[in-house]
Amino acid sequence: MLLIDCPYCGKRPEVEFAYGGQAHLVRPRQPAQQSDQQWAEYLYFRSNPRGMHAERWRHTRGCGRFFNALRDTTTDHFAATYRIGESPPK
């Protein structure tokens, strides 16, 4: 089980959290002008990297807030967690 550092509450066990998928996906600002391919990319296509992944988590059974995390998908090691609206740390 992962130990996840919620930016608001500190380190808590994984079962308190819900996974929210790839982070920093932005819904198209002008939906009517999107092509089918662009919609498909927004809805379905994901980076799925073997390595560092920026992803959303929600502290569902804690503060209830969303935050972002950088995690290495080859080790499950968290490099950082950061608040929504912040850029991923370098």
Partner: peptide
């Protein structure tokens, strides 16, 4: 498991 991973292992829960 809930999250994407290439580790070929998962959590006990």
């Amino acid at each position: 498991d809930a999250y994407t991973s290439y580790t070929q292992r998962g959590a006990l829960h």
